[in-house]
Design a protein around this nucleic acid. Structure first.
Lengths: 245, 245
DNA sequence: CGTCATCCTGTGGTCTGACCACACGTGCTA
DNA sequence: TAGCACGTGTGGTCAGACCACAGGATGACG
């Protein structure tokens, strides 16, 4: 009953692969509860520490949510919130210099321009259109004159995320959430570089409205261009070395 | 000396944030070694188990590499390999139904088309061009007539990844690697749906050459279109329900 | 004096057992 | 019947103990 290190390296990986296999074969679905840590430990023949290490990974990756106590809400429950894991990954990779900030900005540029264009293309004159209401609600909130730059920034991030959500592509939504948190620290620093915040925020609001307007008009090309200019323009103002490909 | 659960929930998160803070302030850089698990445990006032859980997360996320033994190569060493973490994240999210396969394909479409276009735009007639040699080497390898479909698929994946690497955008490279592994299982299954493998592989080779040719010719629009058609065409053949936006 | 085998040390990897705080369900009590 | 106390099972954490491994330090031997 030792660590059986000879034939199976990394006990926690056994647990991880077991859970992944269960997910793939459908034995485990979102909303289901994993067996208890002690039960998993006995079932897989590994120590509880190893089980916990695997569960911790799953938790950070946004696959499970854990809660103590008893009852239906306790234990490890399968969820699928990719945003959290993506954010952690991007944030740490940026911190470790694995992801240059410029590359993140470039990727945002690509994804968001594409999203705006797709939203416009999905808008047909017959009324069949993606739901932009959440995004427009955020735009209204950003019109409030007594917002601190930080608050404005948060709403701005939420607006861009709302557009991604409206596109219905969960991968892009999660990725954009991750990209955002990856450069969040830099974005906060960048606020200091803005000379005239009043003018800048007014321009940002105007550009946001312009993007939404182009989408409503089903003008994909304009939506793409405006989104591209909006993002690259902002970063050009806050970072001196921002690329504008 | 109890778990000090009252003021600080989640001991492992303390470790995670400590490492992240050290990374952000530059006290920890790629190539550096983290303190030993026992040392970190004592330094942060948490148990070694908690330290290990945090380290496990960092390892899966591709931020550290651990090795037992002694010497300069032992311990936890900061690396920055975003591909690994991204792959694990995508794979598990797909398994948990958090990422629909269709969304992954759509995202691939967007990113790869953009990459091809950017590569073409970066190609100037004066000889200033991105390095496509690794990608073309893979194309040569794919011309070998005695490749199994699985081997071909692996080379195909490597080729697409090589294009992303040529673009120099590490975020896109890592993301595409992740997207790829997310649908790897489905791609393998999809092989069975191909009726005439010989014809399909010939077409794929031809299309690959076409993409590279357009890039060399600095024809961004064609490079984008060909990449888009290449990917969506392949998925249309292997998955019946593949979107073609 | 040089070379090689040996031991020693420190590392991650794992297991075990023991607590704690918490939330729920049960069943007793008023 | 309504309310509350207790028991139980959950994750969260810690402490200690081994193991396997890699490398350096130490010594014996040619």
């Amino acid at each position: 009953m030792d660590a059986e290190t000879s034939d199976t390296p990394r006990a926690w990986r056994i647990v991880l692969e077991h859970v992944e296999a269960q997910l793939l074969e459908g034995a485990l679905r979102p909303g289901d509860r994993l067996p208890g840590e002690r039960a998993l430990s006995a079932e897989l023949g590994v120590g509880r520490s190893s089980v916990r290490e695997a569960l911790r990974v799953l938790e950070v990756l946004g696959l499970i949510r854990t809660a103590a106590g008893s009852g239906p809400n306790s234990g490890a429950i399968i969820i699928a919130t990719p945003g959290g894991g993506m954010s952690a990954l991007m944030r740490l990779q940026v911190a470790a210099s694995g992801f240059p900030v410029a590359d993140i900005v470039r990727t945002r540029l690509i994804l968001e321009s594409s999203v705006a264009g797709d939203l416009a293309e999905a808008t047909s004159p017959t009324g069949d259109a993606p739901d932009l209401a959440p995004a427009e609600l955020l735009l209204d909130a950003m019109d409030s004159p007594d917002l601190s730059p930080t608050e404005f920034l948060a709403l701005d991030a939420a607006f861009h995320l709302a557009l991604a959500e409206a596109s219905g592509n969960q991968v892009i939504t999660a990725t954009m959430a991750g990209l955002r948190s990856g450069i969040e620290g830099y974005a906060r620093e960048g606020l200091a570089a803005i000379i005239d915040w009043h003018a800048t925020s007014a321009r940002l609001r105007r550009e946001h409205r312009g993007i939404v307007e182009a989408i409503h008009r089903a003008d994909a090309a304009t939506a793409r261009t405006r989104t591209h200019d909006h993002i690259s323009g902002y970063y050009a103002e806050t970072f001196v070395d921002t690329p504008t490909p």
